[in-house]
Amino acid sequence: MVLFVVLLVFMIIGSIIAIEARNLLSSVISVGTVGFALSIAFLLLGAPDIAITQIVVEVIALIILIRGTISLDNTAIEKHRDTFAMVSALVFFGIFLAFSYVALKDMPEFGKPLMKVSQGYLQRGLQRTGAANIVMSIVLDFRGYDTLGEATVLFTSILGAFVVLRKRGRKKKEERDRARVGIPGDL
């Protein structure tokens, strides 16, 4: 318990540095420290699958973020700070935290999970699927629809990135169509 509190405080400090840093590059690297601390937390929480995934994904995410920001303008924007919006946002987040404190009283106590559905998975996972890794048997067998939806979401996001980043596109064909119909080129 104390260990998780220490890790979470470390993550909160890292995210404060990431939010308030002047330079975008140091901000991105602070997010990286938060992610690696998160993977250690997953490992201590008895989730080695998630820990492996998180640590690998964090490396790729860092590469992508640095790739996106390193050659561009990486100074923070300091002028015209809107203090009213900042203060009101902080007040609303205080209210949010107060309500979440009320809601958290109904959550199961830390260290004592409910496990109504998972009990069945743990008991019958090996007989029904033959896999020793119960997490994989849930991901690919009991809840395969989730994984199928995940594949679709990943495919769509990559498609979106391709379409957004493509420089030349289908512009020539579009201009030809416009000329044929008679619409001026620049709308």
Binding site: D49, I52, T53, V56, V57, I60, A131, N133, M136, V139
Partner: peptide, 14 residues
């Protein structure tokens, strides 16, 4: 992936 921690997602990312 079905015996030890791992699976398709982390392996693919590696």
């Amino acid at each position: 992936g079905h015996l030890t921690p791992g699976g398709g997602f982390p392996g693919g990312v590696i």
